[in-house]
Amino acid sequence: MSVLAASPPALRAERSPGYWRGVGSRIARDPVVVAALAVIVALVLMALLAPELAPMAPDKGSMIRRLKPIGTPGYPLGSDELGRDMLSRLIYGARLSLLMGVVPVPVAFLFGATLGIVAGYAGGLVNALIMRTVDVFYAFPSVLLAVALSGTLGSGLGNAMFSLTVVFIPQIARVAESVTTGVRKLDYIDAARASGARPLTIVLEHVLGNVLGPIFVFATSLVSVSMILASGLSFLGLGVRPPDAEWGLMLNTLRTAIYVNPAVAALPGVLILITSVSFNLFSDGLRGAMDVRS
């Protein structure tokens, strides 16, 4: 009897290392992606810690110290057209620039993915209703739609972010719909339905895990576009209003300074470029690591 009491250890299913750990280790092995990720983290930290990092207040101007060149004592990166310290403004600028450029993408991801997955899974009339509406907004070139919306609504951070979100929802919805339609045709979905699972359960349990990856990768590739568009709106005077520090707006207000102090006038764009390149490299690396084909 004692033999029976010492029952054999229950057979435990050995959990496989898992998909995401594989993705993680592939990313960690790619020096370019790691570097891009490090730059992104540094930029976010710069935005969060702006008050500690910036040597001066971003809005403190000086009429006698306008447009100082790079390397002026006390102004390591020069000063802008109102005599404000460029270094401090660039550091503070990360806050609004990242907020404006990054936030529309996750918001659009939420709405776009939901619309696309519902359309893709439901098919039929629901699909037609959602996707034909999406097609209409997709029929606008993205810059035009962003400018049209924020131009009519008027300048301001909120309106600009709203416009960008509207621009990205159709793009994400289209990707989500096509991926979901592909997954829905697979046998295991039929099997789940045949065994009595409700649509919501099927979507949450079986569809979501297989479609979120590709949609997510696509969305990350939009962050760079969003950064450029967001700063572009501010550059046009449609985004953040002066005297707030934002890289696109700084490029705009410094435009007149290109004859006096070109290097300082070009600085904000360097930061937009660095941010945008980092997000693109990260997105490319993620795409490769997740083996998602465009």
Binding site: M227, L251, V277
Partner: peptide, 12 residues
């Protein structure tokens, strides 16, 4: 770089 550059800045 071509897809990442803020083109309005490149213009400047």
């Amino acid at each position: 770089l071509g897809v990442s550059v803020p083109h309005y800045w490149l213009g400047l």
